[in-house]
Design a protein around this nucleic acid. Structure first.
Lengths: 115, 115
DNA sequence: CAGACGTACTACGACAGCCGTAGTACGACA
DNA sequence: TGTCGTACTACGGCTGTCGTAGTACGTCTG
């Protein structure tokens, strides 16, 4: 059973995060669980990867953070900015292109049979 | 016009190279041109990226090199090994999985319209 | 009430792969 | 003779991922 290598996803972690906060703000732990769930355990983002992505995105102006402890837990929520949304849509378009390109070099039905 | 960022392809450069030598050996310059051509100029691999991939692949036992100057030019050709072929097919399967996962987070028809 | 467990992070440093820059070398062509 | 295209090699910087570790607080359990 193939596993997804992180180098493949590398260019899309930011995009995945933006997707998950684009309708409503969320926070690290929750996003991690959502990625895990939506990918059916096929992709589990590492905490350090996730939080460093947040700071990168905030530095870039693609997300804004705010604190909320109304749940009893202190959490840093992230909200997408208009620039972040534009970036997200750009990445979606890029994805379509990338897919097209990569598939020139990929064989589906790779092989039937043995070793 | 979207451009493909290298981080996206990062996990697939090796796969692309293996694809291009899997039926017959080839060499750096030629492979570079093939990638450019097959992707319709959408992906242009950098020389340094390409050659460092070759040495990585050779170290891993996925390709073998040999010299040929019968064309008047001295060239280092690379030939895929059985292990390299197996790796290639594995990557093809991984690609299908990756595609599936990423597309949970991508919106097609991202937006119609302006800016 | 102590300790384990789950939640929610932060800090630090290593490493891999991409890429910019630069340089070599040689043949063809003008 | 000089420029262009071919065919590389070397070096070093940078970005993003990830291993390891540690903090802190709430809840649940015995």
């Amino acid at each position: 059973m193939a596993e997804i290598s992180s180098d493949v996803i590398r260019g899309y972690n930011d995009t995945i995060i933006l997707f998950l906060i684009k309708d409503e703000p969320s926070y690290g732990y929750e996003i991690q669980k959502q990625i895990r769930g939506l990918s059916q355990e096929k992709y589990i983002i590492k905490e350090t990867t996730l939080y460093s992505a947040f700071s990168r995105l905030e530095k870039a102006g693609f997300v804004e953070s705010f604190l909320d402890d109304s749940s009893g837990k202190k959490r840093t929520y992230y909200r997408i900015t208009p620039e972040g949304l534009a970036y997200y849509y750009g990445k979606c378009e890029e994805w379509e292109l990338t897919k097209e390109v990569v598939e020139h070099f990929i064989m589906k039905e790779a092989k039937n049979g043995s070793n």
